[in-house]
């Protein structure tokens, strides 16, 4: 169980490096939004903040965040013994999750370069990727949790083990009240 935590530390250090890069590296503007010209209770975007370097650093921040999310899921799912099936399914989930995020990012790069608006199910294409893709994809993990619960989360013999632990605790408490 040591390996996942080495990977964990690697991802965290990568995130720190990216954040440091965003803060330290020169950028056209770090101001991302300003008060709307006509409606003071609204904000508007500041175009100068859209440097390519900023966007790519942000993209990798997103990818590493997704890696960390799936690693958390794996840590929660992995039991005492290593199980290759669990790892494979979580890695497949990670590939799709990160893939959807990457497609959404590519769609956003096109969105900021083109003047035309392509609507998909009520929203501009990159927003639709975000809403219908990144938001909904974790349902895959929910589905996994529900259908594999008895095999991967709580096996039938775990209930027996729990009873034994509780009995052992009671015995200990009776001996040392």
């Amino acid at each position: 169980m040591r390996k996942p935590f080495i990977v964990f530390l690697f991802i965290l250090i990568s995130l720190i490096v990216i954040l440091a890069g965003l803060i330290i590296l020169p950028s056209k503007s770090i101001q991302v939004q300003a008060q709307h010209d006509l409606f003071p209770t609204m904000l508007k975007s500041v175009k100068a903040s859209q440097s390519t370097l900023t966007l790519w650093l942000a993209f990798f921040f997103g990818i590493f965040s997704i890696c960390l999310f799936t690693l958390f899921l794996y840590i929660g799912l992995s039991g005492k013994n290593f199980n290759r099936k669990k790892l494979v399914v979580i890695v497949i989930g990670l590939i799709f999750y990160a893939g959807i995020f990457s497609f959404g990012f590519a769609s956003y790069l096109r969105y900021i370069q083109n003047d035309s608006l392509r609507i998909f199910l009520g929203f501009p294409a990159p927003t639709a990727w975000m809403l219908y893709g990144i938001w909904f994809f974790p349902l895959f993990f929910t589905f996994l949790y529900v259908i594999k619960f008895n095999d991967w989360v709580l096996k039938p013999n775990d209930y027996q083990r729990l009873k034994e632990i509780m009995k052992s605790r009671e015995r200990r408490e009776t001996r040392n009240p």
């Binding site: 939004q33 903040s49 650093l57 921040f61 956003y108 990159p126």
Partner: peptide, 9 residues
Amino acid sequence: GPWGTLGMV
């Protein structure tokens, strides 16, 4: 867009 006025980061 996907990030609103706050931006991607």
